[in-house]
Design a protein around this nucleic acid. Structure first.
Length: 431
DNA sequence: ACTGATGCGTC
DNA sequence: GTCGGAC
DNA sequence: GTCCGACGACGCATCAGT
C-alpha cells in the first residue's frame, strides 16, 4: 500500500488539482516532484492514518503538500515505530559506532498508544491501531488520577505489563497478561505501565526536536562498553524482560512512525541455549493449503528413563523454506505406512492429541534461544503439571543425529536447562 | 451445563 | 511475533 | 537493505451440538 496505492493516489490528486503541472519543466522534473509528493503522503499517513483528513489537505496544497501540512490528532493512532532486530550486542555496537545511544529494558507485555483527547478522555490503542480502552479500565484510572494538570492532550507510547504487586512487584510474562478477561473487570491480573515516548503533547510534536543530552561514558573503550551493556542485558533478562532496546540519541534521533528504524535496535537473546536438544518426533498434524500432504507441526518428545516413557516437549513449527520441500518425499517415507501407529501408545506421555502417531525412529537436533512456558496441555512435571514448554527461536537440523531414539534428551536435562536459563519465565501464575 | 471447534486479536 | 521472498 | 504478505503460538470469547 505504501509503495503503490498512496503514490498513485497522490499523483491522481495532484494531476487533478494542478493540471498545469505536466506543462512545466521536463518529464524527469515532474517525476521527481511526484516522487517527493508520494513520500510526503506516505509520511503523513503514518502520523495521521485517515484519508478523510489527508485527501482534502493534499488537494488544497497540491504539489506543496508536506507532512508538516498536517498535525497529529489525539484519537487517531500514529503508526508505531518499530525496532530493528539484531543478533547480539556486538552487532548493535557496530551499527551505532561513533553515535550516542541509550539502552532500555524491553518489557514483555503489550504495546499501547495512550491518547488524551481534547475532551479529557483517555483512549488506549493497540499496536495495530485497534482500540482497546475497554480492556484496561485500571489504566484509565491511573491516568485520570495523575495527568490532570500536566497536559491537556497527549499521545504517548507505552508497554502494558503484568505485575504482581503482592509478591515483590514481580513482573509476569506476556502469557499471563493475555489471560486477562476481555472487556474490563479483572482483579487477578494487575498491570503496570511503562511509558517510553511522548509523540504529542499540548499540540506540540516533541519528537521533531533534537535531544539535548549530555553523553555519559563517551570515553569508554569498546570492551568496557560491551561489558557494561552485557551486564545490562543480563539484568533485563533476570527481570523477566524480553531483552533490551538500544536507541540512538544522535541528531537524527526521533520518532519514525511505521519504520523498522535503525534508530532502535532490539537485542533479545544472546547465544541461544548452551546445549542442543535431541528430540524424537512422535506425532504430527496434517497441513493444509500450500503444504497439503505434508505434516506440520511435528510433536517432539524427550525420554524419561524412570518411567520408560517419551514425554512431549514442544512442537516443531512448520516454517520450512521452499528448498526444504525438495526433501519432502524423502521425509515422508519415514512417516508413512507401517511407521504410523493406529493410536497413541501408552509409552507416549502427552496431553496433546496430534492427528497421527509415529514409531520412535529418529532423533532431530533442535536448537533454541530460550524456553517459555504456556497454559494448557501437559509436559515437564518438574516445571508444572499442565504447562507446556516451548522452545523459542528454534533451529532444526533435519539431517538427524546418529543417536537412537532412546539416546535423546532426558526429561531431567531439559528441566534443568529451563530452570537455569537467564530469562525467567513464570510457571506458577494463576494459582 | 458442558465441550470442542472456530474466530479474533495479541505477540 | 518470525520468516522467506520479491523488489 | 527494505518491505510485505503468509505464516505460527496462544489467550479469551462465542457458538453449535450434546
Amino acid at each position: 500500500m505504501l509503495r503503490t496505492i498512496f503514490p498513485a493516489l497522490a499523483h491522481a490528486i495532484d494531476m487533478n488539482s494542478c493540471p498545469t503541472l505536466h506543462q512545466e519543466g521536463t518529464a524527469k522534473n515532474i517525476k521527481d516532484k511526484l516522487q517527493v509528493l508520494s513520500m510526503a503522503v506516505v509520511e503523513a499517513y503514518n502520523i495521521l492514518p485517515n484519508l478523510d483528513l489527508i485527501v482534502p489537505c493534499v488537494m488544497n496544497k497540491g504539489i506543496d503538500f508536506s507532512v508538516s501540512s498536517l498535525s497529529m490528532v489525539p484519537g487517531i493512532t500514529i503508526k508505531p515505530m518499530l525496532e530493528k532486530i539484531t543478533n547480539g550486542i556486538p552487532q548493535a555496537l557496530k551499527l551505532f559506532e561513533n553515535k550516542a545511544f541509550t539502552c532500555e529494558y524491553k518489557y514483555d507485555g503489550q504495546r499501547a498508544q495512550i491518547h488524551k483527547l481534547v475532551d479529557g478522555s483517555i483512549c488506549v490503542f493497540s499496536r495495530n491501531g485497534g482500540e482497546s480502552t475497554s480492556r484496561f479500565p485500571d489504566l484509565i484510572d491511573i491516568f485520570k488520577g495523575s495527568s490532570k494538570s500536566v497536559a491537556s492532550t497527549f499521545i504517548m507510547d507505552a508497554e502494558i505489563v503484568d505485575i504482581d504487586r503482592k509478591n515483590g512487584y514481580r513482573i509476569m510474562s506476556f502469557q499471563v497478561l493475555s489471560s486477562r478477561r476481555r472487556g474490563g473487570k479483572d482483579t487477578l491480573v494487575d498491570i503496570c505501565i511503562f511509558v517510553f515516548d511522548i509523540m504529542f503533547a499540548n499540540g506540540e510534536h516533541p519528537f521533531k526536536f533534537c535531544f539535548q543530552i549530555e553523553v555519559d561514558d563517551a570515553c569508554l573503550t569498546y570492551e568496557a562498553t560491551l561489558t557494561k551493556i552485557n551486564a545490562f542485558l543480563e539484568d533485563a533478562l533476570c527481570s523477566s524482560c524480553e531483552g533490551i532496546l538500544v536507541k540512538t540519541l544522535d541528531v537524527d534521533a526521533g520518532y519514525s512512525p511505521s519504520k523498522h528504524s535503525d534508530k532502535w535496535l532490539k537485542v533479545n537473546y544472546v547465544e541461544g541455549l548452551n546445549d542442543t536438544l535431541y528430540l524424537v518426533p512422535i506425532g504430527a498434524w496434517h497441513e493444509n493449503g500450500r503444504k497439503a500432504g505434508w505434516y506440520s507441526p511435528f510433536l517432539m518428545a524427550c525420554f524419561n528413563p524412570e518411567a520408560k516413557k517419551y514425554q512431549s516437549v514442544c512442537c516443531v513449527m512448520s516454517r520450512f523454506s521452499d528448498s526444504f520441500y525438495r526433501f519432502v518425499k524423502l521425509m515422508k517415507e519415514l512417516f508413512s505406512r507401517d511407521k504410523v501407529l493406529s493410536k497413541k501408545p501408552p509409552y507416549y506421555q502427552t496431553g496433546v492429541a496430534s492427528d497421527m502417531w509415529f514409531c520412535p525412529q529418529v532423533v532431530w537436533e533442535i536448537r533454541g534461544a530460550y524456553f517459555t512456558v504456556s497454559l494448557g496441555l501437559i509436559c515437564i512435571t518438574d516445571v508444572k503439571m499442565d504447562y507446556f514448554l516451548h522452545l523459542k527461536k528454534m533451529g532444526i537440523n533435519f539431517c538427524a543425529s546418529d543417536r537412537s531414539p532412546k539416546e535423546c534428551s532426558a526429561v531431567a536435562n531439559i528441566v534443568e536447562m529451563f530452570h537455569s536459563q537467564t530469562r525467567k519465565m513464570d510457571a506458577t501464575a494463576g494459582d
